[in-house]
Design a protein around this nucleic acid. Structure first.
Lengths: 214, 214
DNA sequence: ATGAAAGTGACATTCCAATGACAAAAAAAG
DNA sequence: CTTTTTTTGTCATTGGAATGTCACTTTCAT
């Protein structure tokens, strides 16, 4: 899992990189919001840890325009109640005030990135996200590696619409080559051939979705 | 939304009941874990706020056996790091140490009960903004992608007038081609056919509006 | 009552997800 | 290393749905 850390205090950066890497996360740190924006044009981390009070810009603005679709933990220098409240209401997934305990931060990071792990069961399909194993009616199904990644992304975004473009950015980000929207469509067809047509809902003109609720 | 508060400190209970009810939550408080267990046999609250260090039992045990399927915020008397870490790793959705700010608690409660359901409800219409799914009287309605985008814009501007021109700029911004005002009118007709005539109010000479008030 | 704005039904065109087929690339098997 | 199988990405086609416009009617405010 990849984490983008946006923080300018070097001691904090060093400490967190060490702690996060100890927990098998890949960390990229940026000390300015402008650098973070640049980084996000090319990459899509699983989590952003953001110091809301960076000198070079308005963290609130950055949050709203760039990372509202990414899981976010906000760090704040002060424990001003208003900051906590507005941070959480803005939509951040968690909020921690300095000085914070590194172990607590790690625990909160683990919690955020663990959700969507384990065995997820939708209708007659079981997805074991640890073993990367898919079963239909209890029987293992052979999926190619890309099919698995796509399904994984859908399963970790249950009840949310996933656009073809976001799928392309996620799944094909390592290749320099771009890929056509229709390629995604073809993969949906292939997954449906193996798992059944009803597991993935098409939203014409928008994207795809997996539904949980019965 | 219903909240079960498990806490024995009477001042905290009174304060939280007041604050939560101010925010339109229904609160039931139990000061012993045994009472809470009894309550849970008959009821299924949306959230449990649990003081982990109650005198009459092991909060950890209670958590694991009774409320692991319910959203939970854990309160702790001490800010011992180990407690926070183990609380979060146990699977609690959030963790707050005493003494805590009531406003922060409310903000965290709001976040938990709001997340997962980006559902806006007006009259007999429900709009799930995550799933991009619209229900009328609890039944799914099939809307085209443009109809959805238009409705989305109206729903996110509740009680505000939306002019045809602003809709055109918003919805048709990606196309180079401009679009006639009447096209908007036609879409309003199509949406009304599917959702009922009373959901969208026409302001002659100005635009359209969705009203929230009963 | 009158003119302007909004609503309506119909229509031609465009769009889009789905699909089967194919070649290139990669992986597995021999 | 060579052969075989699987995976991957693209393409052209298709049928049904979505879209935008028009001519016409109705509604509304003055």
């Amino acid at each position: 899992m990849n984490i983008l850390l946006v923080e300018d205090n070097l001691s904090i950066v060093k400490g967190l990189i060490y702690a996060l890497e100890q927990n098998n996360y890949q960390v990229v740190a940026k000390n300015r919001i402008s650098d973070a924006i640049e980084y996000l044009e090319e990459h899509h981390p699983d989590l952003v840890i953001l110091d809301i009070s960076l000198p070079d810009g308005d963290g609130t603005f950055f949050y709203r325009d760039y990372i509202k679709d990414i899981k976010t933990i906000i760090l704040s220098a002060n424990d001003n109640e208003d900051d906590i409240v507005s941070g959480l209401e803005m939509g951040a997934d968690d909020y921690i005030t300095k000085p914070f305990s590194t172990r607590e931060l790690i625990a909160r990071v683990n919690k955020l990135l663990r959700s969507g792990s384990g065995v997820i069961k939708i209708k007659n399909i079981e997805f074991d996200t640890n073993k990367m194993l898919v079963k239909k009616d209890g029987v293992s199904v052979n999926l190619s590696s890309l099919e698995l990644k796509i399904l994984m992304y859908l399963f970790t975004n249950i009840n949310k619409v996933v656009t073809r473009q976001s799928l392309i950015e996620r799944i094909w980000e390592w290749t320099g080559n771009d890929v056509y929207d229709n390629t995604v469509t073809v993969y949906m067809k292939r997954i449906r051939e193996k798992l059944g047509t009803d597991i993935i809902v098409t939203l014409k003109g928008i994207g795809y979705r997996i539904d949980n609720e019965k």
